[in-house]
Design a protein around this nucleic acid. Structure first.
Lengths: 339, 339
DNA sequence: CACTGACTTTAGAGCGCTCTAATCATTCGC
DNA sequence: GCGAATGATTAGAGCGCTCTAAAGTCAGTG
């Protein structure tokens, strides 16, 4: 039962300086391990600091230095593990740079998202990485006030905002080509709300369908498992003719769709083939076996961190866009030879 | 292509005060919407602020006020969606309190965890919520330096650190009782590394097994899907007699186990029944149908936030512990009547 | 031995805000 | 009409640190 003093933090640099018999400035240099401090003084200062139980107030240091060494990261939703992958990539990309990562969750609500971005900006983070920002470019630009930003999985026309994404248009086309190659002709697409800015997958789907002379079938959902399930249940209950293949906006939706199909006794892939997108961990599970289109989430995170660090490092120049190629991974849900 | 000025932030309260013809202190009062400002001045100040594009520097305000209105949250792992549930609970619990939430990920590495906690403390967050801290109590106490903290899913003997958890011992017993009730006698438990502080589920299992006169079978894994799968594959390859039921430390591990069983042609639940713990979203999916023990993750998050806010609000007194009762949810993986 | 020049150390002025105590304006009671 | 009471506003001293410029140290040099 250690008696942690309630008198809390009170030890300042000044105290350490007094204890060590040096100036506050010298303590500051030691704390930032500046090379221009003599070994003797350095140890003296460190010893005094340890003796007093000193811990620097980063708030004050940030205020004085105008560098926060913190990156703000905005995620759409923690329930979709693709963001956990992106997070891993970001921490890999920032490792060793001395930067700290702060996470906020936007929940696809432009109000919440902007509030989070403003918080980051008010805290003077060095940069903001947005993975799943659904609001408008104008509002984002206003909220950023010049803070460097990188958007993942989306292209934004804002000066100074870089983009790192996977080719969503190509992903949509890839799904259609794959299913068409398996002999499917009635291929539906379950995408997301009309107002959301993530339309490229749908466009890729539509373009590919048209090119193949097939008639598109679109249904909207909300990017969640529950949403995908609900929309499919409703469709099945409607008695409309069921497509032979479905391409879902993301894996979560695809899994929801598979659940609904299963509960109606429809077999995947024999009655209906399903293709998702994102290639999240659970899609790869043999218990699910969902064919998916890998978006290189981890790499996107790494790349975003890298681009961000370069920006912070002072690289000027116009906004850059880095686009990766998606990769189709065929699994049981679209494999005609599947048991 | 909006030209966001690169001269960035420069507008300070001083500027707004000058523009509005009032003192800096008045601007400060308006920004914190103090009631003791006349309506006339208030609008004048707000207009000037808007005209200049002023945004308060929260860093400075925090430094001066000694209140950061920020809670630091440490998660074990973003890939386990139980933490997304806890996060939801925390944001629900802090909603409307004007507090901001900052997330860090510890990855079950005491070094990383302590670093994150120190960061929070150096930033002078008002409190820290730890969901999945695996290090020692002493080191945590030292890193906290008196900052209020709440630990989720674990009881820690540190003065001033509250605990909010689900009864893990009971969870272990619940699993055994359920499986025993189904007629199982050879019930194995796949738990986590010996050094991790989460031992109560195992102890509950051991206690219940002993009470029923059954012989325990323990295997260690690492709380991940991959880990559960690997451990099961290895076990199956060893040729040892397979238990008729397995209770896994968490759902992720349980899913990994189910994957391994499936790949060896063993049917769940007919050949082996499987029970997980946490009741994460995917366990409830009909495609998985994993029997699990609900830990009320969301409620735990809410409760933790609530306890934290009370502490910050000045409630003194000894550390409290709030313990919830786990609930068994039977699904296909342990249902003998399952198809 | 005065004089560089390389290396250390420090004084002191901020960073942008909050907070206390004091000042200035009004209104009210008698 | 005057002091008290109430309310609105402000001066000014920090918060704990960083940073610039200046000042000390102490060899080595001619």
């Amino acid at each position: 039962m250690k008696q942690t003093s309630p008198a809390q933090r009170s030890v300042t640099m000044e105290d350490v300086a007094r204890e060590a018999g040096v100036s506050r400035a010298l303590v500051s240099l030691v704390m930032r391990n500046s090379p221009k401090v003599s070994p003797a003084r350095r140890t003296a200062v460190l010893e005094s600091a340890a003796a007093l139980g000193y811990s620097p107030n980063r708030l004050a240091s940030r205020l004085a230095s105008h560098r926060t060494r913190t990156l703000g990261v905005l995620f759409l939703d923690l329930h979709n593990s693709v963001f956990a992958d992106i997070y891993d990539g970001i921490t890999e990309g920032t490792a060793g740079s001395g930067n700290q990562v702060m996470v906020a969750v936007g929940s696809a609500d432009p109000g919440t998202e902007l509030e989070a971005v403003r918080s980051f900006v008010d805290l003077r983070v060095d940069g903001v990485i947005l993975a799943g920002y659904t609001g408008s470019a104008e509002e984002l630009a206003a909220a950023l006030r010049g803070t460097p930003a990188v958007v993942i999985t989306r292209e934004l026309e804002i000066d100074g905002v870089d983009s790192v994404l996977c080719d969503d248009f190509r992903s949509g086309a890839l799904a259609v080509e794959h299913l068409h190659g398996l002999g499917h002709r009635r291929i539906a697409h379950v995408d997301i709300s009309d107002w959301l800015p993530y339309t490229a997958r749908r466009e890729g789907y539509l373009h590919a369908m048209e090119k193949l002379g097939l008639e598109p079938m679109l249904v909207h959902s909300d990017m969640t498992e529950r949403g995908g399930r609900a929309v499919m249940e409703k469709f099945l209950a409607s008695g409309a003719e069921v497509p032979t293949a479905i391409f879902a906006h993301n894996d979560l939706t695809a899994i929801g769709i598979m659940e609904a199909l299963a509960s109606h006794g429809l077999s995947v892939p024999h009655d209906v083939a399903v293709v998702g997108c994102d290639n999240i961990e659970v899609a790869a599970s043999p218990l699910i076996g969902l064919t998916s289109i890998d978006q290189h989430a981890r790499e996107l995170g790494q790349l975003a961190a890298q681009v961000m660090l370069e920006r912070i490092g002072g690289t000027a120049g116009p906004a850059v866009t880095r686009k990766l190629d998606p990769v189709l991974l065929v699994r049981r849900s679209s494999d005609p030879a599947a048991g």
